[in-house]
């Protein structure tokens, strides 16, 4: 009886402890990043280089994904509207509002989490297993400050820009489909009457937060890598899973706060 209880506690407790430690490690990297930012020790050239890389790695995927998202969602919604109330005037405005508030930042965030998060974890992880991170430490270059801080700034800024771009792409795709298939004129579709500055702000705050956290979560996975190439592979997988999860969690938290506090 006692043995069974202990086994159960162990089975439940083990993973819980592991998750707790993981969250604590990520938080500790976050704290170090914030400290470095407050001290203003930022390598701006590296920030620009990383921003370029992040944009370069993501632009194509975001164009394709958000383009299809625009096509599919407008098609689905318009088909329903056509059956119930054949009045398409509010479809475009509602679509654009939803893109700003939710889909553009979050889908872009997920794309960056997989595409850029995996790259960061692989890069930093391989530096760990080849002792380059130890070499940085010996030269008094703090790995978090040296490797992760520039990536957080670059990724936060780039995710904001990519989100704006994503709204544009999705809107253009949706507009084209609405025009061709449902005969909704572009001037009816593209209307900002439902989009308030608060919607835009909510979307951009989400984008900025995702962008800030992805390198922290992915970088922590990379720094925790151990044991050769297998360790790097494992760190990369963990980075993708954790940073995608972080995007969803942040979406939930920011939407919740937005609703509860700012009545968004």
């Amino acid at each position: 009886m006692n043995g069974a209880l202990e086994a159960t506690l162990r089975a439940v407790g083990g993973p819980l402890v592991a998750v707790g430690r993981h969250v604590f490690d990520i938080y500790s990297v976050f704290a170090q990043v914030v400290t470095a930012l407050l001290k203003g020790a930022v390598r701006w050239r590296e920030v620009f280089r990383q921003a370029y890389l992040i944009g370069n790695r993501s632009l194509f995927f975001i164009t394709v994904t958000l383009g299809f998202l625009g096509l599919i969602s407008v098609y689905q919604v318009a088909s329903q509207i056509q059956r119930i109330l054949p009045d398409f005037t509010m479809m475009g405005p509602a679509f654009i509002q939803l893109m700003w508030r939710e889909f553009a930042p979050t889908i872009t965030g997920l794309m960056v989490a997989t595409r850029v998060g995996s790259g960061i974890a692989a890069e930093i992880g391989s530096m760990v297993v080849t002792e380059q991170v130890d070499a940085l430490r010996m030269c008094n270059a703090d790995p978090v400050r040296y490797l992760i801080v520039p990536r957080t700034i670059a990724s936060a800024v780039m995710l904001v820009m990519l989100t704006i771009y994503a709204v544009l792409v999705a809107t253009l795709a949706g507009m084209a489909l609405a025009d061709v298939v449902f005969d909704v004129s572009p001037s009816t579709f593209v209307s900002l009457q439902l989009v308030s500055p608060r919607d835009v702000a909510l979307g951009l705050v989400k984008a900025f937060s995702y962008g800030f956290w992805i390198p922290i979560v992915a970088g922590q996975a990379g720094l925790a890598a151990s044991g050769g190439s297998a360790g790097v592979g494992w760190a990369t997988t963990r980075a993708v899973v954790s940073s995608s999860f972080a995007v969803i969690l942040l979406d939930f938290i920011i939407s919740g706060i937005g609703y509860a506090v700012f009545n968004l």
Binding site: T130, E131, Q132, A135, M138, C139, N140
Partner: peptide, 29 residues
């Protein structure tokens, strides 16, 4: 650590930097 110099068993050269920048790194830091 400012006192230290460390030659790593597996080189541990920064693979994203040229030889020149690798050697200059501790001085720059």
């Amino acid at each position: 650590r400012e006192q230290y110099g460390y030659v790593f068993q597996n080189y541990a050269l920064f693979d994203f930097m040229s030889v020149r920048d690798n050697v200059a790194f501790p001085l720059r830091q």
